[in-house]
Amino acid sequence: MFSLKEKTIVVTGASSGIGKCTSIAISKAGGRVVLIGRNEDRLIETFNKLEGIGHSYYTFDLLNFSEIKSLVSRIVTENGKIDGLVNSAGVESTVPLKVLSYKNLEETFKINVFSGIELTKHFSNKKNFSSKGSIIFLSSVMGSLGEKGKIAYCGSKAAVKNMIKPLALELADKNIRVNSISPGLVMTEMTDKLFASISEQSSQDIINKHPLGIGTPNDVASLCIYLLSNSSRWVTGTDIIIDGGYSIS
């Protein structure tokens, strides 16, 4: 197991799925975790599962774009400089073109893309970030592939996996690494929502496309721990696919 001792890591989307599991894994690796999500009850649920001490949580709606800067200041004032950021907050969108509204596109991009950029912008400021560190964005295999009804989602995830490249270049001077992870289907609430919108047969077809079966949040959390640790010190500006073979089949 890679060590995250002495590191403070901020995790968005910490109230559910991959973000929740990653938060718990960070605490097990010795890190201090700052949890962000909207739902306080579910944040507390994650908080109570953390090992060690010094963790904290913040309820925040990432659609409140203009308040992200002050959230970052508050977090750093109360927890000290941070060493890592995992942008796991995200929304799924299965809306075919003919009913796709600007509102839907805007909301999907605001959460999946813009909020992560804004958090990165403020956290990466010298006064907020330790001398070296790691930032992770959650993209998706859908950032390279397509499914009917996934215009907003695929578009947003494609944006994520490419924007990390200029971010990595800009932040390399500060020794901050930026990478993205592209998971295949992972069993979380997001997947439950996706399966609810399509037929049982379509759900089964998607599952069958994963040669190693579908993933668990833990599979992705393990990769996050590696990317947050010093062991990945030479890895930046890259997108790592973790999908049980989905995209090669």
């Binding site: 299965t94 809306v95 075919p96 003919k98 009913v99 009917k148 009804g149 919108s197 399509i198 037929s199 379509s202």
Partner: peptide, 11 residues
């Protein structure tokens, strides 16, 4: 069909 069902869900 499945795509129109998705549209109907949003509608």
């Amino acid at each position: 069909d499945s795509l129109n069902l998705l549209s109907l869900i949003t509608f």
